[in-house]
Amino acid sequence: MSTPRPRRTWRKPPAIANPVLRYSVFVLVFAYLYWAIASLPFNWDRIVQGLPRAVRIFGSAFPPEFARSQLMISGFTESIQMAIIATLVGVAISIPVAIMAARTISPRPVYLLGRGIIILARSFHPVIVAIIFVKAVGFGALAGILTLVLYSLGFVGKLLAEAIEEVDYGQIEAIRASGAGFLKILVYAVFPQILPRQVGLSIYQLDSNLRASAVVGVVGAGGIGGTLMNAFRRFDYDFAFAILIVLIGIILVSEGISGRIRRGIA
């Protein structure tokens, strides 16, 4: 009766419609991978020895050695103390910097200065900051604390500035209409709105500082990191693994506590 319909085909349209562009993306990705791998200096001889070496390392790491617990306790205590002080100082400094770096309430030059401080504080990994402070103020906890203060300033400052930029402007307007000046507007219209965020960030930062305090010691800035580094240097893998296990335990506990508190206030 009816003429047979022509068969219609269907294929999923490709994500990148232009075939030239599509294939050039593929080619570019592979070219990049080739270039990156070829240009990196891999020491293959040394790498092939890796497997037996790994077996030896893990072999000597078990069982982990907890006998030198005194050394471990003092290292962790120092890390925790560094984290607490640095959080306190860092958060305190980050508040004025965040106010400076909030586009909505600061004049432009102040805003740029505030942003600049935050970008500078955020761009360098704490370990890099730590080596510089170690060279400037000597080995030990002080260099670590300074590092973590800067680290906290970058993170809390950035997020707090964003929180300030997002506050409900109507509340600011209302307080302004009552004849209040800048400081009173901050205290009445801005701080109440960012307070929950501020508390949450501080607790989160305490947790991050605790993690970071464990690594700044690798370059001599105090805390458990130094103990760990020495254990690796002296091939004391059993002690190193004991430290790692405790470290992971402490991080999990602190993450759990800080998560619970933050959920509590949210």
């Binding site: 409900d168 109507g170 509340q171 307007e173 209302a174 009552s178 709105q193």
Partner: peptide, 15 residues
């Protein structure tokens, strides 16, 4: 501004 009170559409209270 003290002499000029203002009431807002969205109340603008400090929540």
């Amino acid at each position: 501004r003290r002499a000029i009170g203002m009431i807002f559409q969205g109340f603008n209270l400090i929540d």
